[in-house]
Design a protein around this nucleic acid. Structure first.
Lengths: 336, 336
DNA sequence: ATGAAAGCGCTAACAG
DNA sequence: CTGTTAGCGCTTTCAT
C-alpha cells in the first residue's frame, strides 16, 4: 500500500476544490454543478482514482465484505458453494473473505474471530465436523453480525439456513436400492452429532421400515471418508458376503468401498449395489459410474448469499429466520 | 457492523484514561505502568475487545491481507495451492481475499481491481487461460503492490514466481512412455500462449528428439479439458488405431481420453499407454489408475506466500526477483 | 453550488 | 508515565 495511490484529497488539491466537493461530484450528488462534476470525474478517471475500501468501511460502518467459513475447499461440493456465493456476491458489490476450518473447531473459532476483526458484514458458515460448542457463533450473533448456515447447520443457533433435504435424499436412494431387490443394505454413516449424519441415517432407516425390513445395527458403520474405509477394511470385507447393497453418506466413502470390494473380487453391482451422496465429479470417473444423490452446491451458495444480502440491505423486513431446503434428486448410474 | 462492538475509546472512557494509554497498554508498550497495563488488559479481555482491522489498515497503510486470484477453485491443484497459502499466511497473521477468474480475462481484471481497492498488501496470481494482455498486472506493480505468480506465470511482468518444472515433468513422462516402447505418442496440449503449454509441449518434443523420433504435428492436438475431448472425439478415435501412447497436459483430459478409448474397445495400457499431468485425486479413482506427473500444489502455495511475506516484511533486502522451480516427479501407475 | 469541520477507530510524535 | 494532537481517506451535517 504505497502512498502513490491517488486519494480524494489529491484530486481536491489538484482541482482547487474541497474534498467534499470531490466526494459529491464522484457520486453524482445533485448539488454539484454540471461543470464541476465533469472536471472531477474526468480527472479521477485520468489518474485512475479508486476509493479506499478501508476508509469507506470505517466511515460507513459497513465493509461490503462477507466472510465464509467452510471445512475444506478441496471438496467439490464446498468449492461449488463458493462459486455460487462468489457469483452473486460480486454482482452485488460484495467481496469475500474465505476461510477453511480444516474440520477443526479451533481453526473455525479463530477464523470467525478474524472475520469479525475485519468487520465483515455477515458470515456464511458450514460447520466443521469437530465443532461441539457454539459460543463463537453466539458471540457473532450478539455482535449483530448475521450468520447463514449452509449444509452443515447448527441447530442451536437461530439463523437463516440453506440445506439439502438429506432425509429425503437418503430415503430416495435407499428406496431405490430396495426396489432393485436389495435387502441387506450397509450404511456408511457420518458422525451423528452432525445434523446431516442423523438425517441421512434416518432416511435410510425409515426407507427400510417402509419396506418392513428390520434395522440391523451391525449394518450401520460410522465411516465417512476414504481413509476410514481403509481403517475399517477388515470389518467391511467380513460383512461383504452377507450384504447386497451399500448406501454411503458421501461419494468418497462410496467409491473407496466400491474399489475395496472390487479388489476382493466382488462384482458391482451384480453382487452388491453401491450408492453415494453428493454427486461429486468423481462419481463419473469411477467404474462403474456411481449412483448418487445430487446436491446442488452452486445453487445453495447462490441462495445463501442472496438471503444474507437481503437481510443486510433490508433490515427492516428482517422478520423471522428462514430455512431454505433444496430437494435432492437421484442420479441413477451403473453401480446399482 | 453494529456499534455495540467495543472500541479503544470505550475502554478509555470506562477506565478514565486516554485512548493512547489504552493503545499502548494493549501492546505492552514499556512506558506504561504495570498497574495501568493490567487494568486495561483485564478490562479489554472482559469486554472481549478486538481491534478494528479496518481502522488499523487505514492508519498503518498496511492491511495484513493478501489477495489471491486463481482460475478455478474447483480444481484440486488450485485448492491445494490455496490451502498451502492459507496455512502459512494465517500463521503469520495475514488474512486472505480469494477470487476466481473463471478463466476469464475480464473477471481477472475486476478481481484485481477489487483487491487493490481493499488495499491488500500483495497479490498471488495464477493467470487465466484467456489473459492476453497484462496492463492490469503492470498497474498493480506500478502502485507498489508486490505480485507473486504461481504456476500460470506471466513472463512479461518482472515479479517473483513459483512454478513447476513443466518442461522436465513432460520430458520425464514422455521418456517413460518411450521406454515402455511407445513410439507414436499423441500429445493433448494446452493453449500455446500459456507458458505451461509451451513448456510441456517442448518437454514432449525434446524427449522424442532425444530418442531420434521425428515430431509428427498430426499427433499434437490442442485439447486440455474433458469437454474438449468430447469435441474432438471423432478425430481422436480416427487417430487411435495408429497411436500407442498418449501424454495429456492434465489429468482431466487424460482420463477423458482414456475413457473414450475404452468405450471404443481399446485396451489401456495394452494397446495404448496413457499418462496425465498434475496428479489430481481422480488419477487414483480412474481405472486403470492413471500414470501422471505430481505437481506439488500445497508446497507451491506455501512457498509463494513465504516469498510474498518476506518481500513485504523485509523491503530493504528486496533485491532481485526470484523464480522458485519445483521439480516434478513421475507417479507410475497402471495406465502406462 | 461549495466549503469547513467532525468523526469512523486507531497510532505515534510530541509535550509535559 | 500519560495525555494531546494530528492524521490515515472518506462522508456528511451544517454553514455560507
Amino acid at each position: 500500500m504505497k502512498p502513490n495511490i491517488t486519494s480524494i484529497i489529491d484530486i481536491a488539491r489538484a482541482l482547487g476544490v474541497s474534498t467534499s466537493t470531490v466526494s459529491r461530484a464522484l457520486k453524482n450528488h445533485p448539488d454539484i454543478s454540471e461543470e464541476t462534476r465533469r472536471r472531477v470525474q474526468e480527472f479521477a478517471r485520468r489518474v485512475n482514482y479508486r476509493p479506499n475500501a478501508l476508509a469507506l468501511g470505517l466511515k460507513q460502518q459497513r465493509s461490503f465484505t462477507l466472510g465464509i467459513i467452510i471445512p475444506e475447499i478441496v471438496h467439490h461440493f464446498f468449492s461449488s458453494i463458493i462459486s455460487g456465493i462468489e457469483d452473486v456476491a460480486y454482482g452485488k458489490g460484495y467481496r469475500l473473505m474465505i476461510c477453511q476450518s480444516n474440520e477443526e473447531f479451533e481453526r473455525e473459532r479463530i477464523n470467525l474471530q478474524a472475520l469479525l476483526d475485519h468487520r465483515v458484514d455477515g458470515i456464511l458458515v458450514s460447520m466443521s465436523k469437530n465443532t461441539f460448542q457454539y459460543d463463537h457463533f453466539e458471540d457473532a450473533v450478539e455482535q449483530g453480525i448475521p450468520l447463514v448456515f449452509l449444509d452443515r447447520v447448527c441447530k442451536n443457533i437461530e439463523t437463516d439456513r440453506v440445506v439439502t433435504d438429506d432425509y429425503q435424499g437418503a430415503h430416495l436412494v435407499t428406496t431405490h436400492l430396495l426396489r432393485k431387490g436389495r435387502r441387506r443394505i450397509l450404511h456408511l454413516a457420518a458422525p451423528q452429532h452432525l445434523f446431516i449424519g442423523r438425517e441421512r441415517l434416518q432416511g435410510y432407516t425409515e426407507a427400510l421400515t417402509d419396506h418392513k425390513i428390520p434395522i440391523n445395527p451391525a449394518l450401520i458403520l460410522q465411516c465417512d471418508t476414504s481413509a476410514q474405509v481403509k481403517t475399517l477394511k477388515e470389518q467391511i470385507i467380513r460383512l461383504a458376503p452377507n450384504i447386497d447393497g451399500i448406501f454411503a453418506v458421501n461419494d468418497f466413502s462410496a467409491i473407496a468401498v466400491m474399489q475395496l470390494l472390487q479388489e476382493h473380487g466382488f462384482q458391482i453391482p451384480e453382487q452388491i449395489s453401491v450408492a453415494g451422496f453428493g454427486d461429486d465429479p468423481i462419481a463419473l470417473i469411477a467404474r462403474p459410474k456411481l449412483t448418487t444423490v445430487e446436491q446442488k452446491g452452486y445453487a445453495m451458495g447462490r441462495q445463501a448469499v442472496q438471503m444474507m444480502i437481503d437481510r443486510l440491505e433490508h433490515p427492516e423486513l428482517a422478520g423471522e429466520f428462514q430455512t431454505k431446503v433444496f430437494s435432492a434428486t437421484l442420479k441413477l448410474r451403473d453401480s446399482s
